[in-house]
Design a binder for these strands. Structure first.
Length: 510
RNA sequence: GGCCCCAUCGUAUAGCGGCCUAGUACGCUGCCCUCUCACGGCGGUAACACCGGUUCGAAUCCGGUUGGGGUCACCA
């Protein structure tokens, strides 16, 4: 605590307050994930969900899933469904909450109005809440008048309004908001990732918890629900750090009226940053979880990368499974500095996980990404080709979305192959193609070993060409591209007739 | 502006007083492998923001400076 004598308050009271934090460990741990369904799932939000999940699974505690839909303006059912989609895709499950039920249902705040009304009444009766009639403009004018920095906000001046004064405001037709009377002391807490943090008295003011229309605000319902649901550890984004003293103040009030027994421990997770030094916003494409899925991230890879944003398993390994993460995860090990979302690194990790997949699994996951080339469901022939082709590309992909570019030619009719500009060989290549066709036509046993043997003998040894010169045009003829799966295996897969047709077709176009 | 948080290679991190002439991974890059691209192998590049202090000894502890971020809503 800094030396500022004027702001110090009774140390006795401070001690009494800090003694009320939760001491839950192991299976007594209760964490929660409580998104607002506004917009499509954001990687920062998912990282928060992941860390809460990992902590619950590590300790053997419980994860509660709650929906904070108190802002009817912005919340949407579609966003809620997307949240479920995202969590389901990633395999982040919960023990109590929306979708699975539990002792503290309902878990959507929009359905908990009665509960809040009751709590509001109790807090009001006990004097923790008071009516505030001032408008934002009036508060600002008042600050200017008193020589206070307008940015300082509310100065608690209505704390002790008399009944007559309140009546007068009401007579003017004003409806009061309700504010929480915060303690005039410093407030400290031991942040799980940042250590001891103290907010000096006066740096947080009596804040509005209920709108004049009676609807409570996030600053109220969030701690109230945490209290009612017995949450012991609040792991959330760093952006909520500054509001923690207010929440602790509310907790003190809830404890006094018997609605809570302890204040949860807080752990503020670092920001996920985008390029430059700004927080990854919904505007940035890489913040969109579904975009990553569309591009071909697999859950294993994305989860692994996300957990690396502020946490690490060991000093020398950064590719790991969620089982390994769960076994090792502790919030206390989370690094407090902001982490940049590095798409390249994420893709690399994803590529590693793709390679870790069994061939069967990998093949199955390819199907949705080849939609434009496959029948739905894929035909037997297509499945057979895919089964053979998958092992050829598994170690050449970082994203499943690369599949169409790499494998599309296998599912394209011979006369519909399109040639990429950068893959087009010079006219001289026609000779190479013709020679290849001549040799391959003689080949009876159509295996990639034989194809390679024959072509090497003819073009490399016989023709004196360098392999990359000789095989480049063939690759273009077969796949239409400069980069493809291994050439001879591809020809084997296509079959003799199709391969020769493709070679001839390109030759005729040069 | 008040308050709060943060500070190790370009990026993510390891490091929790001596094992650090600072490790790993991505990136970039050289070589090898090679039908393309990958994968794989062997190298290279590059960091403790600054200044004081504590200590026999500091990337690690303390103070300050600078820089960055957040927050000060009747949004969440």
């Amino acid at each position: 605590m800094s030396a500022r004598p004027g702001l110090r308050r009774s140390p006795v009271r401070l001690q009494a307050m800090s003694a009320t934090f939760s001491t839950a460990t192991g299976t007594d741990v209760r964490v929660r994930f409580c998104p607002s369904p506004t917009g499509t799932p954001h990687v920062g939000l998912i990282r928060t969900a992941l860390f809460n999940w990992a902590y619950a699974r590590h300790t053997g505690g419980k994860l509660v899933f709650r929906i904070e839909d108190t802002d009817a303006e912005r919340d949407s059912e579609e966003s809620y469904l997307q949240l479920l989609d995202a969590l389901g895709w990633l395999g982040i499950d919960w023990d109590e909450g929306e979708g699975v039920g539990g002792p503290d249902a309902p878990y959507r705040q929009s359905q908990r109005s009665d509960i809040y009304s009751e709590v509001i009444e109790k807090l009001r009766a006990s004097g923790h809440l008071y009516e505030s009639f001032a408008t934002a403009e009036e508060i600002e004018a008042r600050n200017i008048e008193n020589g206070r920095d307008p940015k300082q906000g509310y100065d608690n001046f209505e704390r002790d309004l008399s009944e007559a004064e309140r009546d007068r405001f009401r007579a003017e037709g004003r409806a009061p908001a309700l504010r929480l009377r915060v303690p005039d002391t410093d407030l400290s807490f031991d942040d799980l990732v940042r250590g001891e943090i103290t907010f000096p008295a006066g740096s947080f003011v009596d804040f509005v918890v209920v709108r004049p229309n009676g609807i409570p605000l996030y600053t109220f319902v969030n701690p109230v629900d945490d209290a009612l649901m017995g949450i012991t550890h609040v792991l959330r984004g760093e952006d909520l750090l500054s509001s923690t003293p207010r929440q602790i103040a509310l907790y003190h009030a809830l404890i006094e009226i018997g609605l809570a027994t302890a204040i949860p421990r807080f752990g503020h997770l670092p920001y996920v940053m985008g390029d430059g030094n700004k927080k990854l916003s919904k505007r940035d494409p890489e913040s969109n979880l579904f975009l990553h899925r569309e591009r071909g991230f697999i859950p294993e890879g994305l989860l692994n990368y996300l957990s690396l944003l502020g946490w690490s398993l060991t000093h020398d390994r950064d590719v790991f499974s969620m089982d390994e993460m769960v076994a090792a995860f502790d919030v206390a090990d989370v690094n407090p500095n902001p982490a940049r979302f590095d798409v390249k690194k994420a893709e690399s990790i994803n590529g590693d996980h793709i390679r870790l997949l069994s061939v069967e699994d990998f093949t199955a996951r390819l199907v949705p990404y080849l939609g434009e080339y496959l029948a739905d469901p894929p035909t037997g022939t297509q499945q057979a080709i895919l089964r053979e082709a998958a092992p050829l590309v598994q170690e050449r992909m970082q994203l499943l979305g690369e599949a169409p570019g790499l494998l599309g030619f296998l599912f394209t009719p011979d006369d519909r192959i399109e040639y990429d500009d950068d893959a087009m060989p010079g006219a001289g290549a026609a000779l190479i193609l013709d020679a290849a066709v001549a040799e391959l036509e003689q080949l009876t046993d159509w295996s990639h070993e034989n194809i390679e043997r024959v072509l090497r003998a003819e073009l490399i040894e016989g023709g004196g060409l360098k392999p990359r010169i000789a095989f480049g045009p063939l690759r273009t003829a077969i796949s239409g591209r400069r980069i493809s799966p291994p050439l001879f295996e591809s020809m084997e897969l296509l079959g003799k007739e199709s391969s020769i047709a493709r070679l001839s077709r390109l030759a005729s176009r040069l």
